[in-house]
């Protein structure tokens, strides 16, 4: 991770995913339920955090450390409802980068757009990393 040059504005090349119903089911089944509800799946809603499985390409010129990375905060905004068969193109961008002491505070904004350009989701992650 650079500590002299600001990575703000660096962006990943777009990556297109076709939403796969098996991937949705696998994600859904990986969310454990609380005591007394095991095995109950009363709604057909898409798991709200499913967009995290739609990975962006790496951001050229920017890498996160493999260890000591802490996820501090996560936000999602949603537009068009995701469903199986949809094409979603995902890009990720460094929108904020600050160093305080030996810690870097990095905000990554990942956007998912439908084939016609409509916003499907925006995911904003605040990550804390040791400055190298």
């Amino acid at each position: 991770m650079p500590s002299s040059t600001s990575p703000i504005g660096l962006k990943s090349p777009p990556k297109t995913h076709v939403i796969d119903s098996h991937a949705i089911r696998q994600f859904d089944e990986a969310i454990p339920l609380w005591d007394g509800f095991e095995g109950i799946r009363p709604t057909d809603s898409l798991p709200w955090t499913f967009p995290v499985s739609l990975a962006a390409n790496p951001i050229e010129g920017f890498s996160l450390p493999e260890s000591g990375l802490i996820h501090g905060e996560q936000r999602f905004r949603y537009g068009r409802v995701l469903e199986a068969g949809m094409e979603v193109t995902v890009t990720s961008e460094v929108v904020s980068y600050k160093e305080r002491g030996d810690t870097a505070f990095i905000t990554l904004l990942t956007q998912g757009k439908a084939a016609d350009g409509a916003m499907v989701f925006e995911s904003e992650s605040l990550l804390l990393a040791k400055v190298q």
Binding site: F27, A30, I31, P32, L33, W34, F37, P42, T43, D44, S45, P47, W48, T49, V52, I70, H71, G72, E73, Q74, R75, F76, R77, Y78, V81
Partner: peptide, 29 residues
Amino acid sequence: GMLNMAVVGRYLDMMTQGRYRPREWKARF
């Protein structure tokens, strides 16, 4: 952290019986 957040999403989905979906939401870990 994102598994905890997924569980929160499932909890809200079940508490509202699937009648609501998020417009936006955030979690602090």
